[in-house]
Structure formats: structure tokens, C-alpha cells
Amino acid sequence: MTAIHLWRGALPALLALACLGPHPALAFEPQRGTASVYDADQFAGRQMANGDRFDPAANHAAHRHLPFGTVVSVTNLRTGASTIVVISDRGPFIPGRIIDLSPRSARAIGMGIGLAPVEIRPLEEVAQAP
């Protein structure tokens, strides 16, 4: 088999990986954008993407690409307040928003129930069972 045949066979897999989002090594860079808050009334007790139930009083967060179990520092750029959250869900799916926070986490950074400019800084990835 020639190198061209090998390349052609690998091309669909490479394209699929490229569509999954940023390279894992790049996903651990700090990000700036807008944070939003889960609607506690609507999502309390519902299953999140990682299989756990959403608890508005816990430090859950949703991110589109970071692995479940990743510990993230979230800083409100208006107040300077920070909190630590664990990525447990996928989202937000509204352009410009980079993270959804539980109500507890949003209060911890002085965000209330609205939107806020934030910087998120992944601290560590925690291994989770499949």
C-alpha cells in the first residue's frame, strides 16, 4: 500500500477530529467571554451530560469542549471575584457565551442571575469513570 492510499484512508478520521472542537492541549488555555447562569427552577434535578443530577447549590458548570471533571477557576472581570467549578455538562449553545454556571457559583462571583464577562482558567482534569 502506498503513502497516498494510507493518507486517503486517514483523511475521514482526521476531518472528524477537526470537527470535534479545539485540540485538547489548546482547550486548557485561559478563555474570556460571557458567562450565563442555569435556570435553577427549570434544571434542578435533571440529568446533566455526565450523568449526574443538576443541583443548583453545587459548583456545577457547563462548557462546550472541556472534559467532564475538569476543575476550572472562573473570575468575574467586573468584580474580580473568583470561584472554582467542575465541568459536568455541555453548553452553553448561545454564541458568545463560554460557560454556564450553577446559581451558587454565579452568586460566588457576584453575578446574580444575569450575564457577566469572565475569564475561565482550567486548573486540572479529574479522571471520571466512563
Rank of each mutant, 00 (worst) to 15 (best):
Q128C: 12
M48Q: 10
D100Y: 08
D39K: 01
L66N: 02
G96Y: 10
E29I: 10
T83V: 13
L77D: 02
I94M: 12
G45L: 10
G33V: 05
P95D: 13
G21K: 09
R121I: 12
C19F: 12
V86T: 15
G33I: 02
V74I: 05
G110I: 02
I4W: 08
T70E: 05
A13S: 04
A35K: 00
R32M: 10
P103W: 03
G114M: 09
S36I: 02
P67R: 02
V118L: 09
W7A: 10
M111G: 02
P56T: 02
P130D: 13
Q128D: 04
L14C: 06
L17Q: 10
H23I: 12
F68K: 07
E119A: 12
A40L: 06
F43E: 09
I87F: 08
A129T: 13
T2M: 08
L77I: 05
H5Q: 14
A116E: 09
H63V: 00
S105C: 08
A16N: 06
P24I: 06
N50W: 12
Q47H: 13
T83Y: 03
A127K: 14
D55Y: 04
A3G: 07
F43D: 00
H60S: 15
S36T: 14
G9A: 10
F93Q: 10
R121H: 10
I99L: 08
G91R: 03
S88L: 05
A18F: 08
V85G: 03
G33H: 08
T70W: 01
L14F: 01
A10Y: 03
V85I: 11
L17T: 01
I87R: 05
A25R: 13
L66G: 00
G110C: 05
C19E: 12
L20C: 11
A106M: 03
E125S: 14
P122D: 01
A58I: 00
E125D: 12
G69C: 06
V86G: 07
P92H: 00
E29Y: 11
D89S: 04
T83Q: 04
A13V: 09
G51N: 01
A3L: 14
P67A: 11
W7I: 07
F28W: 09
L26M: 12
M111F: 00
T83H: 03
Q47E: 15
A127V: 14
T75I: 10
P117W: 09
L123T: 09
R90K: 15
R46D: 01
E119R: 15
P30D: 09
R104C: 08
V85F: 04
G33K: 00
I87K: 07
G112K: 07
P117T: 12
L15P: 00
V86S: 13
F28G: 03
H23G: 06
H23Q: 13
V85E: 02
M48L: 14
F93A: 05
A16G: 10
S88M: 13
A27R: 13
L26K: 12
P22K: 07
G51C: 01
A44K: 13
A108P: 02
A18S: 15
V118W: 05
L15C: 09
A49F: 09
S102C: 08
L20F: 09
S105Q: 09
I84L: 14
F54W: 02
P95G: 11
P103Y: 08
R46W: 03
L11E: 04
L101Y: 07
D89M: 01
